[in-house]
Design a protein around this nucleic acid. Structure first.
Lengths: 393, 393
DNA sequence: TTGTACGCGTTATCAT
DNA sequence: ATGATAACGCGTACAA
């Protein structure tokens, strides 16, 4: 049967070639034959109009239209030229999660803007739908791209290996540096330390920490009797997400210096819903907590939501500090660590372009800084924290 | 000079072939020659392991590794197989704007999830960086894809024409239906009508409307003396974004039926910042407004932000209703029209898959429904609206 | 200004 | 289980 091709439904377009038995695809050669011209001339008509008499070119375009030929096949063209015209963007998580984070979107936007300049497309390649590694790997091996950009993959991830194995130019973003690979990142630790010190300076000493994922999901955890998000030593041993590690270590160092106690839980998904559930559980279990450090604004927004459900006023009863400073956080009055997310995307794009041009981009670490809004305040000096009737809500 | 290829920096990998003058790329044929085997066998070693003695396959993989061959070239493979392994996603706006909307992200996430099942990649193709139509068009013509998905393009957009011109399967989402083209959408008008009636039922009769873009930017507006966002008859004549049109007409019909007055402004960008600025201007100019209808939650969040800056309490002084019901809106307590955004993406993906399989997907219009939260309330019966001291802030 | 010839790297088919 | 051959659709020297 005919392949899944819709007829050109533009009312203006003439009908495609004659229906001669097999609906064979029209190619450049067909046009050449129809016009008794060389294929090269047809090619030139599309790619180098200056090599052609305008009139011949007009005739060519015309009969091409008439025969239903819509220009050189991009695939064949790419093969011949040796450039795919696209950059592969690899995430070590399902795309649906990637897209759930506004920060990721911002980054991709910046990246796209830069790559568009050179007419490069963005081929999105996500991590495992669940745990289907092989499928992801084959998607990497089969990607028609000129370069790769790896974003937030776990240290030593198979995806990373697969990408490196392709032997194409690679730029890594928000990852542990790998020797010989271009690299763009932010000052994760600096921002985290600033956030932690901010809360410590406000007098908080019992601080909850909502972490991003430590690493790929650990199935063994599901069966343990512990509440979701519990950070066991085993779990912490699998701390392979660079960003999570950097931030957590910085939180801890600051807390230790101030003699404060951290209550750390891990959000398996970077979603508002997950964060809300975790925060509810954590605050219920540890009512002495007066502040929450969050590794993303999405998590922080979940914490805000949990606070509201518990009847806790922010920042009077509970301080919340996020990370990323996504646009909606300004509207929410959320204190957060700002990072130049879109710029990070642009720089990553530049790095790709430089690599493609044979240059060697230098590694860049972008600055972070805390933006204080209305979600953080000095700890309340109460007679008996924990017996506050407000907290029973 | 050597092309922009990074050396395989994995410490375990052996060095790539000998450095014999030209760093010519190793191909399947090279492996075949090195092993004195047929190219077909090498191909089989990668694609059909069962057609091979395990030992021969092992030898092949081994020398491939030694020679720095990382498997069949995806481009050549695609050319030969006749499938590009990717779907082109076309936006009629810069990707950076596309990504700025959480709803768009959600949609893409759902889409990606579905396409991943068939190992199809997502090739993102955005509209003009500014007004550089030709570049966008060439990106469409040069995209190595098996199908296209067009999302929110203007009616009759050149991008749309270019896509249709490729003769590939096409799915359109959130667009005016085009005969013969698969189509997924939502009940834009129904949701908008519900939102409007909600405010009207609450007694609001002076309602601001923050619209999404009417169509591609109109340069002539910039020089006119009118405030940004003003909806002139000329501008409204260029109302080519289907979603905007559907929603606006529904708002108007409902308002007219209730004898209410609408104050319509157009946000040229779907961003919180733009919406905030527009809302500030609008509420300053028309203080009698008691409610704002917004065509997206991003715009609504901007309106909330503006209200705060004006010292207006929501919903006591001002009601705000959004559209899309993105995740963060729940945390903000924003009343909004919910649409099954992620599901829309999945269905769009299904439609693409069906088209690729030679089937004809049926058009689907997904339902919308208003979610009432805390940003909308009955209009205040005040002695003199407009003289309220609170509003002078 | 136009044509010729070849190669890009792979895979399907059919044979052995 | 393995091999030979012919496409796939196009771009580019180079020659005419």
């Amino acid at each position: 049967m005919a392949p899944a091709r819709l007829p050109p439904s533009s009312p203006s377009g003439p009908a495609p070639a004659r229906t001669a038995g097999v609906p064979k695809r029209v190619t450049l050669k067909d046009i050449a034959q129809a016009l008794k011209v060389s294929p090269a001339t047809i090619s030139n008509a599309y790619n180098r109009p200056d090599q052609l008499s305008p009139q011949l070119r007009a005739r060519i375009l015309e009969t091409a239209q008439a025969l239903g030929y819509s220009g050189p096949d991009p695939l064949a063209s790419s093969l011949r030229r040796g450039r795919a015209g696209a950059v592969g963007v690899v995430y070590d998580a399902t795309l649906s999660y990637a897209f759930a984070d506004p920060a990721a979107s911002l980054f991709l936007g910046g990246l796209a803007r830069t790559l568009e300049e050179q007419n490069l497309g963005l081929l999105l390649i996500s991590g495992p739908p669940d745990l289907d590694r092989p499928a992801s790997l084959s998607r990497i091996q089969g990607a028609s791209v000129d370069a790769f950009l790896v974003y937030s993959a776990a240290d030593g991830s198979e995806l990373l290996q697969a990408v490196l194995g392709r032997g194409l130019p690679v730029v890594m973003v928000d990852q542990a540096p790998v020797a010989g690979v271009a690299h763009i990142g932010i000052d994760d630790a600096g921002g985290a330390a600033e956030a932690a010190r901010h809360l410590l300076d406000l007098g908080h000493r019992q601080i909850g920490v909502l972490c991003l994922e430590f690493g790929p999901p650990d199935r063994t955890l599901a069966s343990s009797g512990q509440p979701r998000g519990t950070v066991t030593p085993e779990r912490e041993a699998g701390l392979t997400y660079h960003t999570t590690g950097e931030r957590l270590r910085a939180y801890r160092a600051a807390a230790q210096a101030a003699g404060a106690t951290l209550h750390v839980v891990e959000a398996q998904d970077n979603t508002l819903q997950e964060a809300e559930a975790l925060a509810l559980e954590l605050l219920g279990r540890q009512p002495q907590i007066t502040a929450v450090l969050c590794m993303s604004d999405v998590l922080a927004q979940g914490a805000l939501s949990a606070a509201r459900k518990l009847g806790l006023k922010v920042p009077a009863h509970l301080s919340v500090v996020g990370y990323d400073d996504v646009p909606s956080s300004a509207a929410l009055g959320l204190s957060s660590v700002h990072q130049p997310t879109a710029q990070k995307g642009e720089l990553a794009g530049r790095a790709v372009l430089e690599l493609l041009a044979g240059e060697t981009p230098r590694a860049r670490i972008l600055p972070t800084r805390l933006i204080v809004r209305n979600s953080s305040a000095a700890v309340r000096r109460e007679p008996e924290p924990g017996t506050d009737p407000d907290r029973s809500g």
